[in-house]
């Protein structure tokens, strides 16, 4: 082989390796190499049986119940498609709120209740003053109300 051909062969081999790597990575993202599982995956039983794993989602609005001892809490974690009940006994992080993100680590009981040993709050990348947050949620509520009204108006 001439040096030029060799260089060409090396480039082709290198590109082939990159393509293979990219294909494998894409393939992996269809699978589940994740830090936490979603409630849908939990409901579909696509999670580790009999061992500890993390489940992440939103704390469902109005689902938080505090136990008599003041430490045990119950809430629902949802990804809007599925909801899984969680029981946890311990101190919650400050950012733990209904409607906000949460990642809980624990096991799934046979009764379908997730018994958490650790609860972490997951916040998003939005930072804004309270007034703005208030205005934003109001705007969203109005938008939601409108989207309900519009089809009604169209049907008339």
């Amino acid at each position: 082989m001439k040096p030029r051909h060799k260089r060409l062969a090396a480039i082709v081999a290198g590109l082939a390796l990159i393509v293979i790597a990219a294909a494998l990575v894409l393939n992996a993202f269809r699978g589940n190499v994740v830090f936490f599982f979603s409630p849908s995956e939990v409901a579909a039983k696509a999670v580790p049986a009999d061992s500890t794993f993390r489940m992440g989602g939103l704390v469902e609005e109005g689902s938080l119940k505090r136990g008599a001892d003041g430490l045990t809490v119950q809430f629902m974690v949802t990804d809007t498609a599925q909801r899984i009940p969680v029981v946890y006994s311990g101190i919650l992080p400050d950012l733990f709120k209904e409607g906000k993100g949460v990642v809980a680590q624990g096991r799934l009981g046979p009764d379908g209740v997730f018994r958490a040993s650790q609860v972490l709050a997951k916040h998003d990348e939005n930072y804004m003053p309270p007034e703005a947050a208030h205005a934003l949620s109001k705007a969203e509520a109005e938008k939601a109300a409108q989207s309900v009204v519009v089809p009604a108006a169209g049907s008339r």
Binding site: I18, I20, L24, A28, N32, V33, V47, P48, A49
Partner: peptide, 17 residues
């Protein structure tokens, strides 16, 4: 844990490449 290990093996293969 009874989950499909395919994704892990895929990434391992990608890293090999």
């Amino acid at each position: 844990a009874g989950i499909d290990p395919g994704a892990h093996l895929s990434l391992l293969g990608a890293f090999l490449a």
